[in-house]
Computed example of a mutant assay.
Amino acid sequence: MSHVPLNIREIKAVVFDLDNTLVSSDMDFRWLREQIGCPLDQDLLSYVDQLECHDQTQQANELILQHELDDASASHPMPGCLSLIDFIHSNQLLTAIITRNCAQAAEQKIAHNQLRISRIITREHFPPKPAPDSLLSLADEWNLAPHQILYVGDFLYDLQAAFNADMPSCLVTHGKPSNFAPFASLVVEHLHDLEHTLSQRHL
């Protein structure tokens, strides 16, 4: 996998991952996997989808939901988040959130952190990332070409989803080393660095 080239002057929309991109997340996925019985090398949501026992599936989804709701109530905006959202609105850029969270947890997290983004796509709406369906749906909804939308995230799934949708991507590292940098069109340490980059669009 490579990445789609970014021309910042062509960007008309900025779409975000939620957890550890816009707001903090401290979910203990190792413990959650142990509770559910999911191997460490397997995607958690895919594992639950493949469970054949209805009771097991229901119990696993309830555990995931509780972890997500607890995480939502403890979350806080990442550095530069609120300023970047204000910048996006003031510059008439379109925006949305695409998250692997469930709708209930995502909405609680967005309300808790007072994020001014109303277009939310969760795992109930489309196959979860790295599937590109949610990003492609937004491109159709906004009547934009894929290269006009920048998808911003902190994890490999985000970069893969953007690549699969033929869209440029931005990796936010929050000042930490990342093995995912080669797969991103743009790498920034913090969200205020992305705001600075976007401010260069009309120069």
Results as ranks from 00 to 15, higher is better:
L136A: 08
L82V: 13
A74V: 04
L94F: 13
Q160K: 14
L6H: 03
E34W: 09
L171M: 06
L45M: 13
G153H: 02
P132W: 01
E107V: 05
F87G: 02
D43E: 14
R119G: 02
R116G: 06
C170H: 06
C102I: 10
F87I: 08
I36C: 07
Q59M: 13
C102F: 05
D133W: 09
C170R: 02
N91C: 11
P79A: 14
M167K: 02
E141L: 15
Q66I: 08
G175Q: 10
N101S: 06
S199A: 11
A131K: 07
D17V: 07
L69A: 11
C81N: 05
F180V: 09
I64E: 00
T57L: 12
D140S: 15
R123M: 04
L84F: 09
Q200Y: 03
D154K: 03
I8K: 02
I8E: 03
S83I: 12
Q114A: 09
L51F: 12
Q200I: 01
F126L: 09
D140Y: 13
H76T: 13
Q160I: 13
Q35S: 10
S178I: 10
Q56G: 11
H76C: 13
I88Q: 03
I8C: 10
L32M: 11
S24M: 04
H174P: 05
E62G: 06
T173I: 10
Q59R: 15
